[in-house]
Design a protein around this nucleic acid. Structure first.
Lengths: 343, 343
DNA sequence: TTGAAAGCGCTAACAT
DNA sequence: ATGTTAGCGCTTTCAA
């Protein structure tokens, strides 16, 4: 900057003003242009650390995720967040906390670097108790719901997921539609189940809880789904995610049933691998991970900078994003992707 | 720091010396102890940005990954890297570059923040051309091989993986052992295939390339594996990863064959989801993702600080890590995890 | 063995 | 409309 000031014959303060775009009506436009020209010629790159020292703003965002980065879930979320961050001139520091133990330490470490704000992400939409160390900083939850409903959050529309998936199976002519759900107490599980029930109701079908099995992602699951096959002979399956869809595939294969012909399956695409491998067999509801990440960052930046983000151009999305000032918590609409598993 | 200096009745320079552990023989130990005590009492946290401004060291490491963070592969790698980073007092900034396009931009952004060094990770061990923007900085490759063999890298022992997996199948009494490999040109693919061949040779079995199918992770794969079943009737399968193992499971199920009874399967556990879901059916070779990440960071730190890392205590590992000064590229030994799929 | 002082690169109040 | 000056929190000569 000193070098630029010399070449331009002005002071560093002027250079600072110009390069920060605060020269409107303060610096003669001719001088300003000259400064800008010299800066580009010299390939000047501001030192964000130095300005941070003065302004207290680091343009660093902390992305705290419980396993999100380390498990197949929600990969696109980070990509979306990163895209938004770099678009808005921020840097994203992603921290995966394995258990609850290291979490506060990691947060403390981030804070020492002067993080401007935090994103707090969970693996699957659930009621979340936010660590107290995050209380006083700008914060946005991703795929999680604040227990008090006071913290901004970005979530998929879980009810709609259940409703759309089930409706698709109804339209495919399925009469005995099963739900292979999740045993953990998740918002995602509860709301999708409600969507499933509502769709059945709207289609004039009775809800029968014998057609619902909630399982974990482990050994007993296969037995449970197997029993469901034999006891209820469902012809349609709405699966909580693609890992659970696998159990249906395995059971079908063992019984000589073909997915897309004898039975229909719609699953939520949570683990990309499954969906890719089962493709083109699995019809999926796509979770808008990228959009959630992107929008959460946009929201966080709007909070930090105290300005509306209405002027940002959203990246291509699978579904229109709600306005940035939408009520909290805001739901993102999910899209049903048709493949070949529904007859 | 000023506050500490006041309370201790010394100058900030002294405080700086003490708090940086450079007081040996320079500051009276009584004063030093007093300073330390006051610092802890006050809960002093150094401002890393301010010291960076002076020292040019940020203690920030850039982790550049092509999709690593966004796909199921190699999740533990980031966790391992993060663990090591925080243990050595570094912060890890993870950047996922989707294609080649944004990569140089992201690197530039990281460099502006004064990153001390970089990790460059790939999804699967392959010959890698390192971007020129990374040429002049401390750099360690993770699960990748430098085309010139001059850049430090941390990789799994791919040959050993193939050898161990195949040998396990031989010991289970399999006589017709197939390899379901990967169609892409990867170090992982080539070396594992060699390991497979070597193990057959050592067991006195003939290598027959009809028993090898290399597939991508998509539609045609299922057909290819299906054809392999019908044409060759293998009784053992070594699979490049768990996604490919799924095809074997699907084919076996459709033919009324039971894995672990009629056929045996050993696969490399690349996507945790599959392995978890197929559990306890799939015998896996575990890729030491965590260890690779951890060790890569340790190596990078040793380069940056110009010191040996011999004194660091490694975290619990599946296998002993090679010495930090091991020849480049260094291979990490992988561990075979026994489950129930091998009769 | 300690302290005073300069300065890392930048911003912002205050002068002019 | 521009320049001067004083720091942000820390490290590091250099002098005492």
């Amino acid at each position: 900057m000193k070098e630029i000031a010399n070449k331009a014959g002005v002071s560093v303060s002027t250079v600072s003003l110009v390069l920060n775009g605060r020269d409107e009506g303060r610096v003669k436009s001719k001088i300003a242009d000259n400064v800008r020209a010299i800066a580009t010629k010299l390939g000047y790159q501001s030192n964000p650390l130095a300005s941070s020292l003065r302004t207290g703003r680091t343009h660093i965002l902390g992305f705290i995720s419980e396993e999100v980065a380390t498990t197949p879930y929600a990969g696109g979320m980070i990509l979306g967040a990163q895209t938004a961050a770099s678009q808005f001139g921020y840097m994203l520091i992603t921290v995966s906390t394995d258990g609850e133990n290291s979490e506060s330490e990691e947060i403390a470490a981030l804070k020492r670097y002067g993080t401007d704000g935090f994103l707090y992400a969970k693996m699957s939409n659930r009621i979340t108790h936010v660590p107290s160390s995050l209380a006083k900083t700008p914060l946005v939850l991703v795929d999680a719901t604040d227990s008090l409903g006071k913290i901004p959050s970005v979530e998929p529309d879980e009810f709609q997921i259940g409703y759309d998936a089930t409706t698709r199976l109804v339209k495919a002519g399925c009469a005995r539609i099963a739900y292979v759900g999740c045993l953990e107490p998740l918002i995602a599980q509860d709301d999708r189940l409600e969507g499933y029930q509502a769709a059945l109701r709207d289609a004039g079908l009775d809800y029968d809880d014998h057609l619902v099995v909630n399982v974990l992602n482990n050994g007993p699951a296969l037995t449970a789904v197997s029993d469901l096959f034999d006891a209820e002979h469902p012809d349609g399956f709405f699966c909580f995610n693609d890992a659970r869809a696998w159990y249906v595939y395995e059971c079908a294969a063992r019984r000589g049933l073909t997915v897309g012909k004898d039975i229909s399956v719609v699953g939520v695409d949570n683990h990309r691998v499954f969906a890719e491998t089962l493709e083109p067999m699995l019809t999926t509801v796509e979770l808008p991970h990228f959009e959630m990440g992107y929008w959460a960052v946009a929201k966080l930046v709007s909070i930090i900078e105290g300005r509306s983000m209405d002027d940002v151009s959203w990246p291509a999305t699978t579904a229109p994003l709600p306005p940035i000032d939408a009520p909290i918590p805001a739901k993102i609409h999910c899209t049903l992707i048709e493949k070949a598993s529904v007859k």
